[in-house]
């Protein structure tokens, strides 16, 4: 293929877009909307994933010791827990400290201890951190098996619920996106079909003069390709600026929301969108060419 010929293909493709201006605008917009939503969903999923992983990493297992276990035995237990595999840290919170914390919360002026009958009813408990988030479940199980420990608490349930929500978001998002991608393919196919019809005469002459099949096909293929790429490009620009300005707004103001701020992750989403958009466009024009462009 000669450079000159490639230039001709591009020229023809853009000429067609100008000729079917409004149809092209519609096709580009549809791709842009689809790509935009895909991008938003992708970033949403990535962020929820990111947060869930972060939460999981911070998970502490809290193991409560039976109230009547003597302090010496509790200290013995601490050593035992520290020896478990995969433990990052073990902190003993004795019942006195628990009471302190309660006073701190409810105020010292009230006679809590008196109200409780003079005896500290709080249990001693251990705060255990795992070295890796995947170990949390197993450690919790091991702690529960220790006879002196009557209850083990950890945030795994919450994290699991988060992952469940994530799964739903993925399903609903995928269905919606599939619908939009279908619409985009359809609109691009229609646009390319219009071009095929508009250029019927030219195509006929081309064939009779001896144009090769691909010489005829390339401009149509490129038209769909660029409609898709432009749409996706538009979405990328919006997502790019939108996301980073969102980061600027959120990060300093809402501390518990930790968004992915690694630009590489965002770029990876964006270039996939661009490739996907161009691919959708190419598929649309191939569909139209197969049905309407007889070479």
């Amino acid at each position: 293929m000669k450079l000159r010929t490639i230039g001709y293909y591009f020229k023809q493709a853009f000429k067609s877009m100008r000729r079917n201006f409004w149809m092209s605008v519609a096709a580009i917009s549809t791709v842009a909307i689809a790509a935009f939503l895909v991008g938003i969903f992708a970033l949403l999923v990535i962020n929820v994933n990111f947060m869930a992983t972060k939460l999981e990493r911070d998970i502490e297992v809290v193991a409560f010791v039976e109230v009547d276990v003597p302090r010496a035995e509790v200290l013995e237990l601490e050593k035992q827990i520290k020896a478990l595999p995969g433990i990052a840290s073990v902190t003993l919170v004795p019942k006195e400290k628990g009471l302190e914390q309660m006073y701190a919360r409810y105020g010292r002026d009230r006679d809590l201890l008196g109200a409780l009958g003079g005896d500290n009813p709080l249990p001693d408990y251990f705060v255990v951190k795992a070295r890796e988030p995947e170990r949390v479940g197993r450690i919790a199980g091991q702690l529960a098996q220790i006879p002196q420990i009557y209850k083990v608490d950890y945030g795994q349930q919450e994290v699991e619920r988060l992952f469940q929500v994530l799964g739903w978001v993925r399903w609903v998002g995928s269905a919606l996106i599939m619908l939009l991608v279908g619409a985009a393919v359809f609109l691009i196919a229609t646009t390319v079909r219009l071009t095929v019809f508009a250029r019927q005469r030219e195509l006929q002459i081309m064939k009779l003069v001896g144009a090769g099949d691909w010489f005829i096909r390339w401009p149509f293929f490129l038209e769909g390709f660029f409609l898709g790429a432009f749409g996706a490009g538009l979405a990328c620009v919006i997502i790019y600026f939108g996301y980073f300005s969102l980061l600027e707004q959120v990060s300093p103001n809402i501390s518990f929301l930790t968004l992915v701020d690694d630009p590489v992750v965002v770029y990876q989403v964006l270039w996939r969108l661009l490739v996907g958009g161009a691919g959708v466009g190419a598929i649309g024009s191939i569909i139209s060419m197969r049905r309407f462009l007889k070479v």
Binding site: K2, R4, Y8, R201, Q204, I205, M206, V209, G210, F215
Partner: peptide, 24 residues
């Protein structure tokens, strides 16, 4: 005649060579 009315005489004639991928 089958000339293309959206382009000049020159382009109509050049068209045949373009289609056959002659160099510019």
């Amino acid at each position: 005649y089958s000339l293309l009315n959206d382009r000049t005489v020159y382009d109509n004639v050049a068209f045949a060579l373009e289609v056959m991928e002659y160099p510019g």
